Amino acid sequence: MSPDGTLVDPYGGQEDLKAGVLRCVGEPKRRFEEDALRILRLVRFYSVLGFSAEKETARAAHEARGLLARVAHERVYAEMNKLLLGENVGETLLTFPDILGVPIPEISPCVGFDQCNYHHCFDVWGHTARAVAAVPPKRELRWTMLFHDLGKPLCRTFDEQGVGHFYGHTAISARMAEDIMARLHFEKVLRDRIRAQLACFDDMFRPERAAIHKEMARFGVETVQNLLYTKQADNAAKTPAGLERAQAPWHEAQKIYDELISEGACCSIHELKISGEDLAALGYRGREIGAVLARLLDEVAAEKLPNKPEALQARAVRLWRSGYARHTIKENETH
């Protein structure tokens, strides 16, 4: 700003903003050498703002990408969190995999890796980029989809027809995710959420009320909602042929999930209309109380038992008479 209040713009920044162009001031190579994080920041702006990268700036960023290896992991992590939430994240991941593969080298083997499977029309990285873009912009979802297929290049096998398979790839991907999260210093809360999503990523269940209710009781309400998001995103990033048929059960599952939420369905022991004190009054002691509460929740989630005080009390009495809790604890001790 000049003394008379006039905006001074010697590098044409206003025009670049209007045109949606990302451009380094001066010589791009020198700017990136001064602070290599600017390379990743360029990628982040590409994702968040949807701007294009000026030709020389983009070329210099690709050429200087190795400098990112010197950047502190915490700074990389901060940029990645913002990058992954961008509206243009899918195109960004497809455009800059070589740059992203420096701080996260597990990405590189996925780029161009042919899945050799009729369910997939994209290579592993092409599928991953589209799956990331297909989930809502929540960090645990975007990171989960970024991680979910990293293990595929390590475990591809072929059947007699030459079709590629990736048995056990989710478990391998989960282990790789643990390494990345430790290296980039993910905070514990986010790490636990991503770990929970990868743990149930391959779960299959019918779009039926009892099946979905049991999933919600097993993994938690939020984790199951995220699971439905990841299922739909994973399908959306595969071969378009047959997509509507593949998505139909998950759309139905989402509908049932929403109904259960609106009804206030019981999905945890704390939501049962019976307490540990109530069970103690019936004669249960110590670990017996936890065992019976878990059993009651299982039956409520399976839609076999209403979450009503009278019904739960009566069922607890029958379990007491059958010796269920005592037998269960003894069996667990022998195992």
Rank of each mutant, 00 (worst) to 15 (best):
S322D: 14
Y257T: 06
S47W: 03
T223V: 15
T95I: 04
A291E: 11
P153Y: 08
R315F: 09
H119L: 11
P306V: 10
K82G: 05
T170P: 01
L228W: 00
C110I: 02
E208W: 12
L198K: 04
I261L: 13
T170H: 04
E333D: 12
V189A: 15
Q225G: 06
A311K: 04
K29M: 10
K152G: 03
P137T: 07
V76Y: 03
F51T: 07
G12H: 07
R23Q: 06
R318N: 12
P137N: 12
K18P: 02
N332I: 04
F113N: 09
F205L: 06
R31T: 03
Q14M: 10
V317K: 15
A217N: 09
R175Q: 13
M1C: 11
R70P: 02
C155N: 07
F201V: 12
G26L: 11
P105S: 13
P105T: 12
M204T: 15
G242W: 05
T157H: 00
A246W: 03
E299F: 06
F205H: 08
R191N: 11
M80D: 01
L49I: 03
H127D: 11
M204R: 15
F205G: 01
Y118E: 13
G283R: 01
F219N: 07
A64V: 00
E187G: 12
A248S: 12
R326S: 14
V76C: 01
L37M: 14
